[in-house]
Write a protein that binds this DNA or RNA. Structure first.
Ligand SMILES: [Mn+2]
Ligand SMILES: [Mn+2]
Ligand SMILES: [Zn+2]
Ligand SMILES: [Zn+2]
Lengths: 142, 142
DNA sequence: ACTCAAGTTAGACAAAATCTATATTTAGAT
DNA sequence: ATCTAAATATAGATTTTGTCTAACTTGAGT
């Protein structure tokens, strides 16, 4: 499996717990919190302690196999999608969804950014996801 | 003062503590954490307890006079800049700076966003702020 | 098989945020 | 001015989130 390859090149031992954490994140691209990952991993074997989940999230992040994504709430959220992408946050259900990458026009923000040295950027969209939009279709005038 | 006006229209009583919290945020646009606000407010009168700082950040946020901004670390950061704007995060010193607003081109992301109902968006830039860029000027090849 | 750094674990600890119960303040009515 | 009810302030308890410690286990190379 290619995850073993990723572990090897990152000098991380492919332990069962580490594998389970990364496999859950890769298979459930919902930007889970550490607690959600802990519960998911412990629903079936192999189990992992809370400390191990946190340890592995840190080691995977340091190795670049996982990213911590910005989030509104208190608990950090993690992302195993390594492709460059934007995010969409549903203001009704809280879902954090991936938006495939597109560049800003090269001139965008040139003046607004002043003398800053920009190495990267990301757009965060907000609104209603498809499910929420359909569920409560648009309140016409009463 | 116009803050009284804002309080009045938000149905928030203009207490000394609430005023101090909002005044600090408005006067120090560095996206402070609750703890930083707590310490700043308690350097001079009127004092405010930790609970009051948290309570007021919530009531001010609900009233739309303050926003919680996304942040990397664990502690939430707050913003009294109500104008629409983007943000820049310095990867060296951690500073969170305001970038004045500019629109995405109207077509941007149209396909990537699919059927989602976008009500707002924000760009988060990362890199080196002016101070950090100057401090460590660019490592040439060795 | 032996070795030892890397990894796991429970539980202690710390930081960030919320809640509870009580005291105080405020806006408005008399 | 006094009174009242609701909003606010507060200290400390509690909860949530994350880190650390110290003992134990695993596993990759020899
Ligand atoms: Mn993502
Ligand atoms: Mn801002
Ligand atoms: Zn939704
Ligand atoms: Zn900087």
């Amino acid at each position: 499996m290619e995850l073993d390859q990723a572990f090897r090149s990152a000098a991380l031992r492919p332990t069962a717990q580490r594998y389970a954490v990364l496999e859950f994140l890769a298979g459930h691209p919902v930007h889970a919190t550490a607690e959600e990952i802990f519960r998911a991993v412990n629903r079936d074997d192999p189990r992992a302690s809370r400390a191990t989940v946190y340890n592995n999230l840190r080691s995977l992040a340091k190795a670049g196999l996982v990213r911590e994504v910005m989030s509104e709430g208190k608990a950090a959220r993690f992302d195993a999608n390594l492709r460059r992408h934007h995010h969409f946050i549903c203001e009704r259900c809280g879902a954090v969804e991936d938006i495939s990458w597109f560049d800003l026009p090269p001139s965008a923000g040139r003046v607004a950014l002043g003398g800053r040295d920009v190495s990267n950027y990301e757009i965060v969209f907000r609104g209603a996801c498809e499910g929420c939009r359909d569920a409560q279709p648009e309140q016409g005038a009463k």
